[in-house]
């Protein structure tokens, strides 16, 4: 019979693991709530920005910004947002699968791809895959600042300005609810016009100070940055939700394992006692 002592140590070690996963679950749950709050807090900015950009599209300005003009694509820029840490289920893997599928589609159309990565997981993935990585922003933490993103976004926007890339996409996880996160690849540039706001159809235009070009440059740059920031914050909420679910499953599995082992342990103990008794009895009989 397997030693009762060994089973006991095994149970103990699984219990320790369970304690850790339980703690991680709770930490992830509270962090998720905060991340969701941040997600909500950054939404008005992106929405207001979207409104202004939509107004601008309606306003027929004398100057058409390159970010609003579609041009034939030869090379594509892709910003991939991943987590910094693992233990969050299939979150990153699903995103990478979705990204690779999109990349394959572009490759089939003879398009080349430049990648900017946010988060260490994406970096190591593209390092293994061998993509053309032009910018990296790892270790942004749970409370990222817009500041941390400016660099990576600017690399891509500069490339777009110079005509090195003709389209810019963003790949991140979208927070549906705690149980569901869906990986998505979405186009950032050129900005796709939104025709939902039909109220202001008549001709009018802003007064631009100092001039249309400078204002629009600043505005569209911030617009793209805010979209990427929104994506990042959303991805963090996804990470926490996924980790919470994964850790809950791990704790449950550990519980099942402990129950099974406890049964085996009890049997082993019982067998040992029976054996000892029969030995004593037979010993006494022999005397």
């Amino acid at each position: 019979m397997a030693g009762a002592k060994e089973i006991r140590t095994q149970i103990k070690s699984i219990k320790n693991t369970q304690k850790i996963t339980k703690a991680m679950e709770m930490v992830a749950a509270s962090k998720m709530r905060k991340a969701q709050d941040r997600m909500r807090a950054s939404r008005p900015y992106a929405e207001k920005m979207k409104n202004v950009v939509a107004h601008m599209g309606k306003a027929h300005p004398e100057y058409r910004h390159p970010y609003l003009i579609e041009r034939p694509a030869k090379r594509i820029g892709l910003i991939v947002i991943s987590t910094d840490r693992g233990l969050c289920g299939g979150l990153n893997i699903n995103l990478f699968k979705r990204t690779v599928a999109a990349m394959k589609q572009w490759r089939d159309q003879q398009l080349e791809i430049d990648v900017a990565v946010i988060g260490t997981k994406a970096m190591s993935f593209f390092k293994r895959l061998g993509g053309n990585v032009v910018a990296e922003a790892p270790h942004l933490g749970d409370m990222p600042k817009l500041e941390d993103l400016i660099g990576s976004v600017k690399v891509m926007l500069d490339a777009y300005d110079k005509g090195e890339i003709d389209r810019l996409y963003l790949a991140n996880n979208v927070f549906v609810n705690t149980m569901t996160q869906s990986p998505e690849v979405e186009q950032l540039l050129p900005v796709i016009g939104d025709d939902s706001d039909k109220q202001i159809a008549h001709h009018w235009d802003y007064i631009y100070e100092p001039d249309a070009k400078q204002v629009m440059d600043g505005l569209l740059m911030r617009y793209i940055e805010s979209l990427v920031y929104q994506g990042l914050v959303e991805n963090i909420a996804c990470e926490m939700a996924a980790r919470m679910v994964a850790m809950k499953a791990a704790s449950d599995n550990a519980g099942n394992l402990i129950d099974e082992l406890q049964l085996v342990y009890n049997k082993a103990r019982q067998a040992a006692i029976t054996q000892e008794l029969s030995e004593i009895v037979s010993g006494a009989a022999a005397v």
Binding site: E147, I150, G151, K154, V155
Partner: peptide
């Protein structure tokens, strides 16, 4: 400032590769 940030991320990517 933005320029410096952009450069930094670029360098990091190159170094990482």
């Amino acid at each position: 400032l933005d320029e410096a940030q952009a450069l930094r991320t670029k360098e990091r990517a190159e170094k990482a590769i």
